[in-house]
C-alpha cells in the first residue's frame, strides 16, 4: 500500500508540470501585456509613474521576453521563493490576494462535496433498492432536471425565490456583522466554522453549487447499485441467509462506491465550475470572481495562479480518490492499477 501511494504521488509531478505550462500558455495568449497598457493609462491621465519599480517588475518576470522565458521565471519564482507573481490590478503579490479568498473557497468546496455525497449516495441507494417505485421516479426526474439546469441559472432562480419569500435579495457570503468582523480583524475565517449564522448563509451557495453534481452522483450511484444488486454474489449471499440490509451495505455498497469514488476529481472540478460562475452571479467572496476580473483585466499572474491552484486541488483529489479506491477494492491494491469505470 505504501509503495502504491508513493508511485501514485510520483506520477502526479509531471502532470502538475505540464499543467503549469498549459495554463501559462493560455493566460499569456491575449495580445499586449497589462503592465504596458497600465503604464500608458497612468501616463495618459497625467499621473506619476514609478519607472524604476515598473522596470524591476519587468526585469523580474521577463515581461518583454518570449513566453517560455516568462514561464521559466514564473516557475522559478514559485519553486524557490513561493512567489506566484505580481497582481497588477491589486498592486501587490498574487499570493496574498488569493490567500484572502482561498480558505473560504476550499471550505465551500469541501462542504459542497460533503453535500454532494451525503445527499447523492443515500438517494441513489434508495432509488436502486426501490427501483420503479414512486420515490424512484421522483428522484430520477429531479436528478435529470438538476443536471439540466445550469448552475448560474439555478442561482438566479434561488435568489429570486428567496427574494419572493423573504423580501431581501441574497447577496454575498457573509452577513453584515461577519463582514465587519472580518474587516476589523476580530474574526478569522476559521472562527466562522463554529457560527450558526454563517452556515445558514452558506446553505444557498452550497445547494446552488452542489445540485448538478449531486444529481450526477445520484444517477451514477443508482446505476451502479442496480448493477451490483443483479450480480450473482448477491444471490449467493441471500442463499446463505444474509439479510437484505447487510447485502446492500456490506456487499453492494462497497462495490458500487468504487466508480463514485474514482469520480471524486470529476466532482471537484464540477464544483469549481459551479462555484466560479455562481460566485460571480451571487457575489460570493470566493476565487471565482477574482479569476473573472483578472481575466477581464489581463492580470495574468493572478489568473494563472488561480487556475493552477484549482488544478492542483483537483490533482490532489485524484490522488486521494486513488488511495481510497485501493483501500476499497483489493483487486486494485494488488495489481496497482486503477479500476475501469
Amino acid at each position: 500500500m505504501g509503495r502504491y501511494i508513493g508511485r501514485r504521488v510520483l506520477t502526479f509531478i509531471p502532470i502538475l508540470l505540464i499543467m503549469s505550462i498549459v495554463i501559462f500558455f493560455i493566460i499569456q495568449l491575449p495580445p499586449g501585456d497589462y503592465l504596458t497598457s497600465y503604464v500608458a493609462g497612468l501616463k495618459a491621465e497625467g499621473q506619476i509613474v514609478d519607472e524604476s519599480e515598473m522596470e524591476s517588475l519587468k526585469e523580474r518576470y521577463g515581461l518583454d521576453q518570449p513566453w517560455f522565458i516568462q514561464y521559466f521565471k514564473w516557475m522559478w519564482g514559485i519553486l524557490t521563493r513561493f512567489d506566484f507573481g505580481y497582481s497588477f490590478d491589486y498592486e501587490k503579490p498574487v499570493w496574498p490576494v488569493i490567500a484572502e479568498v482561498l480558505p473560504m473557497t476550499i471550505i465551500v468546496s469541501l462542504a459542497t462535496m460533503l453535500f454532494n455525497y451525503l445527499v447523492g449516495i443515500p438517494i441513489g441507494i434508495y432509488s436502486a433498492v426501490h427501483q420503479y417505485s414512486i420515490g424512484d421516479y421522483c428522484f430520477t426526474f429531479v436528478g435529470f432536471l438538476g443536471m439540466a439546469v445550469p448552475n448560474f441559472l439555478f442561482a438566479i432562480l434561488l435568489m429570486y425565490g428567496t427574494y419572493i419569500w423573504t423580501g431581501t435579495a441574497f447577496i454575498g457570503l457573509y452577513t453584515s456583522d461577519i463582514l465587519v468582523g472580518l474587516q476589523q480583524g476580530t474574526l478569522q475565517w476559521y472562527d466562522l466554522l463554529l457560527r450558526g449564522d454563517f452556515w445558514g448563509r452558506m446553505a444557498i451557495p452550497i445547494i446552488v453549487i452542489g445540485t448538478s453534481g449531486t444529481c450526477g452522483t445520484l444517477r451514477s450511484m443508482r446505476a451502479q447499485m442496480l448493477d451490483e444488486l443483479g450480480r450473482n454474489y448477491v444471490l449467493c449471499a441471500r442463499a446463505k441467509g444474509v439479510s437484505e440490509r447487510r447485502i446492500i451495505y456490506k456487499y453492494c455498497l462497497r462495490a458500487a462506491l468504487n466508480p463514485t469514488v474514482s469520480g471524486l476529481s470529476g466532482v471537484l472540478s464540477h464544483i469549481f465550475n459551479g462555484s466560479t460562475i455562481s460566485a460571480i452571479v451571487m457575489n460570493l467572496q470566493l476565487v471565482g470572481p477574482r479569476l473573472y476580473n483578472a481575466l477581464k483585466a489581463q492580470d495574468m499572474y493572478l489568473a494563472g495562479t488561480i487556475l493552477l491552484v484549482m488544478g492542483f486541488l483537483i490533482v490532489l483529489g485524484t490522488l486521494l480518490s486513488d488511495i481510497l479506491l485501493a483501500w476499497l477494492d483489493p483487486r486494485i491494491r494488488f495489481s496497482g492499477r486503477r479500476g475501469e469505470g
Partner: peptide, 8 residues
C-alpha cells in the same frame, strides 16, 4: 468465480 464478492 462470480458467487463470491471480490471485495472480501
Amino acid at each position: 468465480m462470480v458467487a463470491f464478492s471480490p471485495m472480501y
